[in-house]
Amino acid sequence: MNFYDQLQDATSSQRATLFSAPIIDRALKGEVSLDQYVAFLTQAYHHVKHTVPLLMATGNRLSEDKEWLRNAVAEYIEEELGHQEWILNDIAACGADKESVRNSRPNMATELMVSYAYDSVQRINPLCFFGMVHVLEGTSISIADSAADNIRESLGLPKKAFSYLYSHGSLDQEHVEFFKMLMNKIDDPAEQAQIIYSAKVFYTLYGNIFRSLTGVPPLTLTD
């Protein structure tokens, strides 16, 4: 079994737990309020704006034998530049004040996920970042298009209020294939174990962001 498939299997429990967040079920049914959708976008802004800085930190910390991966990180950076502005524009298209969001503080769940991302890259292993990539991109591919379609229909919002979700849905499949290719080049068991563990942590932390949107108590990591 290749490493990407191992990663999928090893994190299946945490993935299922993330998808059990009530707000995700509501989004897929089109039962999300405008305030809840804007709240989701607000927290997305507060973690997406760190994607490029985290990629830079990851590339800087990779060892010389991972030069091939540093080149891939450079490609990721080019792809991810400015995505936080897309989110702010979506917020404005919802009738909310995007500058107020820009200057707001993230909630605790978002703060903790971002903090762990920086800390794990700097303190543990830069490969930890790829656990985050696995979680965020995999989650988006699975639900973004359906959630966007149903929320858009129920709230009567224009398509331009969903550029973030649509761009990270099925249209983002190439990113997932690129990620699979990278992960299948990781053949060191210790590095594989680190990526799997970080993905489990990020599934829990990202799930807690969704839970925070409806006041559901946060979860802790389980093996």
Rank of each mutant, 00 (worst) to 15 (best):
A57T: 02
G95F: 10
H83Q: 11
V101Q: 05
I91Y: 07
E85P: 06
E64G: 02
A109F: 12
A57G: 00
L69S: 03
L88C: 06
R123T: 13
Y116T: 07
L127R: 03
S100C: 07
Y76W: 09
T58K: 00
Y76G: 04
P106M: 01
R70S: 07
E78F: 04
S104P: 01
Q122N: 15
Y116K: 07
Q84E: 15
M108P: 01
L127N: 05
K98E: 14
W86H: 03
A109W: 11
E80H: 07
Y76H: 13
N60L: 10
P106L: 02
C128E: 15
F130R: 05
P106T: 03
F130H: 08
W86K: 07
L62V: 06
A74K: 14
S100P: 00
Y118E: 12
G82C: 03
V101K: 07
Q122G: 06
I87P: 08
L112R: 15
W86T: 12
L62I: 03
E79I: 02
E78D: 06
E79G: 04
T58R: 00
S115V: 03
L81G: 01
G59P: 00
I77E: 11
N89Y: 08
A117I: 14
P126I: 08
G82V: 01
M113Q: 11
A117Q: 09
M113Y: 13
N125A: 03
D97Q: 11
W68E: 09
F129W: 12
L127Y: 11
D119G: 10
G59S: 05
C128F: 15
K98D: 11
D90M: 05
N71S: 12
E111N: 12
L81S: 02
A57Q: 01
H83M: 12
